[in-house]
Computed example of a mutant assay.
Amino acid sequence: MNKQVSILTIIAILAVGLVVWLKQIPSKTTLESRLLFEDLQKFANQVDSVEIKNAQGVLFSAKKLGDKWLATLDPLQPVYPISQHKLAVFVETMMRAKLVEAKTNQPKNFARLGLQSIESQDSMATLVNFKADGRSWKVLVGSKVTLGEGNYVLKSGESQSWRTDKTIELPIDKFSWLKQPILPFAEQDIRSVSRIDSLEWQIVRTSDGKLELTDLPEDRALQYDSILNSVVSNLTSLNFESLQVADNKFSQSLNVLAQLEVVTDEQQVFQVVVSELENRHFVNFTSNQQPEYWQKWYYQVSNFSAQQLLKTVDDFLEEPSESKNATEASPQMVDEGEAPF
Rank of each mutant, 00 (worst) to 15 (best):
A15K: 02
L22S: 06
P26M: 05
L31Q: 12
E32N: 08
L36T: 07
L36S: 06
Q46T: 14
V47G: 06
E51K: 15
Q56E: 15
K63Q: 06
K68N: 10
L70G: 03
T72C: 02
D74Y: 05
P81K: 01
S83A: 11
S83H: 13
A88H: 09
F90C: 01
K98S: 00
L99R: 07
T104P: 02
N105S: 08
N109F: 03
S117R: 12
I118Y: 00
E119N: 13
D122L: 08
S123N: 04
T126P: 01
N129Q: 15
D133Q: 13
S136N: 05
V139A: 03
K144I: 03
K144Q: 14
E149N: 11
G150S: 11
Y152M: 09
L154G: 00
Q160S: 07
W162D: 00
I172R: 11
F175R: 04
F175L: 11
L178Y: 00
F185M: 11
A186T: 05
Q188I: 05
R191N: 13
V193G: 05
I196G: 02
I196P: 05
I196Y: 04
W201V: 10
T206N: 15
K210C: 06
A221L: 02
S226D: 10
S233Q: 05
T236Y: 05
S237I: 05
E241M: 09
K249P: 01
F250Q: 11
Q252S: 14
Q259E: 06
V262Y: 01
Q267I: 12
V269L: 03
V272H: 01
R280Y: 09
N284P: 01
S287H: 03
E292C: 14
E292A: 15
Y298P: 02
T312G: 14
N325P: 02
A326R: 08
Q332S: 04
Q332P: 07
D335W: 12
